[in-house]
Nucleic acid binder design. Structure first.
Lengths: 153, 153
DNA sequence: TGCAATTGTATTGTACACAATCTATTTCGG
DNA sequence: CCGAAATAGATTGTGTACAATACAATTGCA
């Protein structure tokens, strides 16, 4: 009754795929952050990087990239910009000159106070109950846990 | 016991936010599509546009943008590239010269057969049961439904 | 009818995102 | 100790993504 006849192409319909609402949702939530982040002159990705620093104060580029799933091509210019703004410093590791240590400055620490109110403002827009948010969080974590290739190395 | 002391900044922790796993999930799923899409020489966004055309055969840029939540700055170069590949044609609407009609070509229609196997391959990677996938889909739809501003116009 | 407002697309500029490549540094096997 | 392999970042090139702007076509209203 619902499906008139299975063409074999049903899976190619946008509304049958998880990837599409996931893609749109992620995009639209970034858009929700934008006006709030504009007020403290951060882009969304810069905000993600700052969140890691607010937790850790210091981290090298490799570890930061692993946490955010971003590579050096994305992080290098982004961190240089945050350095220019005075929120962090970039210093080569004395013990291993290949590594670059990123450290939060006092100005960067101060910024945290201005950002503290943002997450709840955006969360309110989503219109999910705490239970629903928890379910969604768990499902996304499950996907992320399954995603890495079975990779037999 | 779990939270030692509430600093008021807990909400700024990456693992407390929905936006971050959502952002990573969307990104990683696109990455999962990439090897399959490489085989038919489409990028992920081009694939989304083609999916709409496989359903509708013809659509103008405005409607396509509304479906995919993409603006003309993204769609114009993307559609020109798909036109170059021969998968679609771009023709001004005779009745309203402002509108651009995008139509699937035979070659574009053929491509559908090569793409038909992709969604299930990626879906398999997610490792969700049909019930979980349904729940996730519903939650994402709920967020998308709530996102548009209350906008009192 | 005539012009202002609207609409649809294109263009420009900024900011990711990542593959591929390059360079400097470190590590490791012989 | 030396050269090959591995590692960490930086650079380059392509492809989104979108705000802001420009502009042509259309619509609506005085």
């Amino acid at each position: 009754m619902m499906k008139e006849q299975t063409t074999g192409f049903d899976s190619l319909r946008l509304d049958c795929q998880l990837c599409f609402p996931l893609y749109v949702c992620a995009k639209e939530i970034v858009r929700k952050y934008k006006p709030h982040l504009d007020e403290i002159d951060l882009t969304y990705t810069q905000y993600l990087a700052m969140m890691v620093l607010w937790e850790r104060r210091e981290i090298n580029v490799r570890d930061l990239g692993r946490i955010l799933t971003l590579d050096s091509g994305t992080l290098t210019p982004l961190l240089k910009k945050l350095e220019q703004k005075g929120y962090l410093t970039r210093v080569r590791d004395k013990r291993d000159e290949r590594c670059l240590d990123v450290s939060l400055t006092e100005k960067g620490e101060k910024l945290k106070e201005s950002a503290a109110c943002i997450p709840e403002k955006v969360a309110a827009c989503l219109g999910l109950s705490p239970e629903e948010a928890g379910t969604l969080h768990a499902l996304l974590r499950k996907i992320l846990a399954n995603l890495p290739e079975p990779e037999e190395e």
